[in-house]
Computed example of a mutant assay.
Amino acid sequence: MTSYIGKCIDDMTVFKSITTQPNQKPWMTAKVCALLKYRVSAFRAGDKDALRAAWAKLSQAIREAKCTHSQRIHGHFQSSGDTRHMWQGIQSITNYRPAPPACDSDASLPDALNSFYACFEARNDITASKTIPTPEEQVLCLTTANMRKTLRRVNPRKAAGPNHSWQSAQGMCRTASRCLH
């Protein structure tokens, strides 16, 4: 099964090689890279005038690239109320890249998941019965309005996982309103 999935992935995805140097600066742009290549070719050709012009163009392009990069970084810190934008700036400055999530190479995982979810499909022969709570027990009372108000206060960007996203919250509101009616 996993080898078939791997084959499908290989058939459907496009692999692209991107070469980066370990000391590549964050302000490096395609224009600067092209001018670096032009400077090297002018140097190898031995043309002093072309080399001088290449150096001038390269210096100007580096200044512009550094200025643009600096403005982009400063833009992350302009508004004090947008903490998400600020953290993106810090990640850009530190060149932080989160590690990709680890994938278990255990081939029995699909079978384990299948058997786990299959237990919910088993026939349930026990009839449901309603129990009446005693006076000392607290009964949980939910209204659609209270649930909707509570779930709308959840910030989907700060949620613990995908099940707490705004779309899931809206779905929970719809489900709860159907159950309560």
Score class of each variant (00 low, 15 high):
residue 88 Q to F: 10
residue 86 M to V: 13
residue 124 N to G: 02
residue 93 I to F: 10
residue 169 A to M: 00
residue 124 N to C: 11
residue 150 T to D: 02
residue 166 W to P: 01
residue 141 C to N: 15
residue 150 T to L: 01
residue 108 S to E: 13
residue 144 T to V: 10
residue 149 K to T: 02
residue 108 S to I: 03
residue 165 S to A: 10
residue 121 E to F: 09
residue 145 A to W: 13
residue 96 Y to E: 03
residue 136 E to I: 02
residue 85 H to F: 09
residue 154 V to L: 03
residue 138 Q to G: 00
residue 135 P to D: 05
residue 115 S to D: 10
residue 108 S to D: 04
residue 101 P to Q: 12
residue 102 A to E: 05
residue 133 P to M: 06
residue 83 T to I: 13
residue 161 G to P: 10
residue 102 A to S: 08
residue 122 A to T: 08
residue 167 Q to G: 08
residue 105 S to K: 13
residue 93 I to T: 09
residue 138 Q to M: 06
residue 139 V to P: 05
residue 110 P to D: 03
residue 157 R to F: 11
residue 150 T to A: 05
residue 153 R to P: 00
residue 85 H to L: 12
residue 147 M to N: 15
residue 144 T to D: 07
residue 123 R to H: 13
residue 169 A to F: 00
residue 141 C to E: 14
residue 104 D to K: 00
residue 101 P to A: 06
residue 116 F to D: 04
residue 172 M to Q: 03
residue 118 A to Q: 08
residue 147 M to H: 12
residue 99 A to T: 10
residue 115 S to A: 09
residue 112 A to R: 15
residue 98 P to D: 01
residue 124 N to H: 11
residue 130 K to A: 12
residue 95 N to K: 14
residue 91 Q to F: 11
residue 124 N to K: 07
residue 104 D to A: 01
residue 111 D to A: 05
residue 107 A to E: 08
residue 121 E to W: 08
residue 101 P to T: 03
residue 149 K to I: 02
residue 134 T to E: 11
residue 112 A to G: 03
residue 113 L to R: 09
residue 144 T to M: 01
residue 94 T to H: 08
residue 152 R to T: 00
residue 87 W to E: 00
residue 110 P to I: 06
residue 156 P to I: 00
residue 124 N to T: 07
residue 166 W to S: 02
residue 159 A to H: 05
residue 91 Q to P: 09
residue 170 Q to Y: 03
residue 86 M to C: 12
residue 160 A to W: 05
residue 133 P to R: 05
residue 119 C to Q: 15
residue 156 P to S: 00
